[in-house]
Design a protein around this nucleic acid. Structure first.
Lengths: 298, 298
DNA sequence: ATGTTTGTTAATTAAAAGTTAAACAAAATG
DNA sequence: CATTTTGTTTAACTTTTAATTAACAAACAT
């Protein structure tokens, strides 16, 4: 019933900390760094405290501290050192690790603090592309190795969504500087990966355009309703799961007839399912390799 | 980069279909039911099509069809039979399987159809308690055995949330029949499991009370702001992860001072982190073993 | 009742992952 | 330069999980 992971294998620690299982074992043996529980059959089982200690140790280790020196430190001393290093170095260097740590502990304050510090140094676009995107990729690996629970993923993505939402709200407070076209962002039926689309919404707003964010699971027919209200519409979407490679061509043909028949409106798409589509005949449909490419064309 | 599971081990199939791995193997051998790919070292790897076929086969099997008979059927015949059975039997018997199927395929239409049929036969409360709750528990098992991706979990929970949201909206359209108290539903800092709280919101609304749904990550201080506006307030929350057993006592003491100091307001709690708290002195704080118990007291 | 169907069990082998210990070699230290 | 530190490699062994085959026994059909 309790679905939050609190027990970790040595492989989990390897994936979460970046320290090889072999190395963790020998640190244990030589320096008594950890004293993990064991199963009845002698297999190591680490708790959350051990994981956190390892994350701290690996942080110092990656910053040039020697393991023999770290091993002699008190727990409090380790924490202090970690603190002072994060203060010294740029937040960029450590934000990925701090975001992961905040996820493991469901620590919203750490997330927010890290994020706020980053925002002082760089734009949200840079943060999203250079930190949140790699973070999401890493989460995929952690998921595949059973190192985190769905709750962890949910926790971190919903915090990121919150941040984008609040940035978008601020932008929507001021008048758009362009009135020549309106962007409509949507995800087709069954599409649930809205984080990328949410980010696109932010970037489009940030460039002074008007947007309508529809979010997930919008059927094609309900899109045509917008055509009467605005002159020039650009529909923006991201096809990650659906429509899949079997049906994406049919979807586009359908979309052409239902939505793009009139003047002025276009469809811009990114995502996994359109990666293989290189040349599409209709100039009203534009395919982008990545959201970065799409942003360049705004 | 593509984080959607498309390849399954025989154990995954076992957990998803309820057919033992042993049995799947022997069906393969005796009736050539499947022809899974193999790894370089001879280990079975099933694709999504195989999984779906097995789900259909197991459905017929559990309905009394003999495996020898199923094995002789064409794929289309199997699909037809499955269809006609789902029509014959009550939706209750099959909804759990259908919801799981809709999740595997990210098939929103199947989810909605199944849900709509259920709503004709029973109340939403019954659906939530007798179907969605077991479904969530089963998802936990599937997660632990690596049988589904976080996307699957996200897909199904966000659809359930959508349903509760729209039911709540309808209820909020009509005037409350009780005006003696207002329920404020919130989750404390770092708490992300809002599905259960969302359901409580529905049940309270359904009994004609006024509610304020704050959702996740509400600090205690911002709750006290509500005290001036309403006479009698009942704060309702669910502590799944936070505050954890170390800090829950402190949290409650803090809450007593900051929020419950005046007249009339109470705090009702359920969730994992308050399971061990049996007798709390302050009668203004009420602990419930489950949300069902809480609903009974409305 | 006789033979067939069908799921389970047991035995054996193989693969994957974890554990321990010893040897090794690069890097740092004095 | 000799010594210590430290991560990696190798080898032997255990545990867990998967695969194959054969045997078994209950249920079913004729």
């Amino acid at each position: 019933m309790n679905r939050v992971k609190t027990s970790f294998s040595i492989k989990n620690l390897e994936h979460l900390s970046g320290i090889k299982a072999h190395t963790i074992r020998i640190w244990e043996k030589r320096y008594n760094l950890f004293e993990p529980e064991r199963t009845l059959t002698n297999i190591r089982l680490y708790n959350l405290d051990s994981l956190q200690k390892l994350l701290n140790v690996s942080m110092l280790y990656k910053n040039g501290f020697k393991i023999s020196k770290i091993a002699k430190m008190e727990a409090s001393e380790i924490t202090n050192k970690v603190h002072s290093i994060t203060l010294q170095k740029s937040p960029y260097d450590w934000s990925l690790g701090l975001f992961k740590l905040s996820m493991i502990n469901f620590d919203q304050r750490l997330f927010t603090n890290t994020f706020d510090e980053l925002m002082e140094k760089m734009s949200f676009g840079e943060i999203f592309q250079s930190i949140f995107t790699p973070l999401m990729i890493e989460l995929g690996v952690l998921w595949q190795t059973n190192s985190i629970s769905p709750s962890h993923e949910h926790f971190i993505t919903s915090l990121i969504k919150q941040k984008i939402h609040s940035l978008c709200e601020k932008l929507q407070g001021s008048q758009p500087t362009h009135s020549d076209k309106t962007y409509v962002l949507y995800l087709p039926d069954n599409e649930i990966h809205e984080l990328g689309l949410l980010y696109l919404n932010y970037e489009i707003l940030n460039r002074g355009y008007k947007t309508i964010f529809l979010g997930q699971s919008v059927p094609t027919t309900s899109l045509s309703n917008f055509l009467e209200k605005y002159d020039k519409m650009v529909f923006v979407s991201c096809f990650t799961i659906e429509p899949n490679s079997d049906s994406v061509e049919d979807y586009l043909i359908d979309f052409e007839q239902e939505v793009l028949a009139g003047e002025g409106s276009e469809l811009w798409i990114t995502g996994y399912q359109v990666q293989h589509i290189t040349n599409h005949k209709n100039p009203k449909i534009r395919i982008f390799k990545s959201s970065v490419d799409l942003i360049k064309e705004l």
